[in-house]
Amino acid sequence: MSLDKDQVQHIAMLARLKLADDEFAETVQKLSRIVAFVDQLSQASTDGVTPMAHPLNAIQRLRADVITEADDRDHLQQNAGAVQDGLYLVPKVIE
């Protein structure tokens, strides 16, 4: 199965990726190729097979309800592109 431009546009929107025009054309072609490749899976007979989400059959460990993290804001915000008064800044969000 191949993907059309609208589908690729929609996926790019969901994934929040802006693609340049030449990049977009190549992406349509390569994604189609990849999807066609993974389409092989449809041949496998998997009736009644339990999906495998984890390689090990282990169960979740539970943490004690204890505060272990101290404030490290100034250090952690050194990687941020825009902060003010301890807040991370984004273009105004209108609700």
Binding site: D65, V66, R73, G86, L87, Y88
Partner: peptide
């Protein structure tokens, strides 16, 4: 709870912005 669901940061209300937001 005292700490968050997936991290050891405090859940108390009203702290200065992002002072109770750890790496996780």
């Amino acid at each position: 709870t005292r700490s968050k669901i997936f991290s050891g940061a405090s859940t108390s209300y009203g702290a200065a912005p992002n002072t109770q937001a750890c790496l996780v």
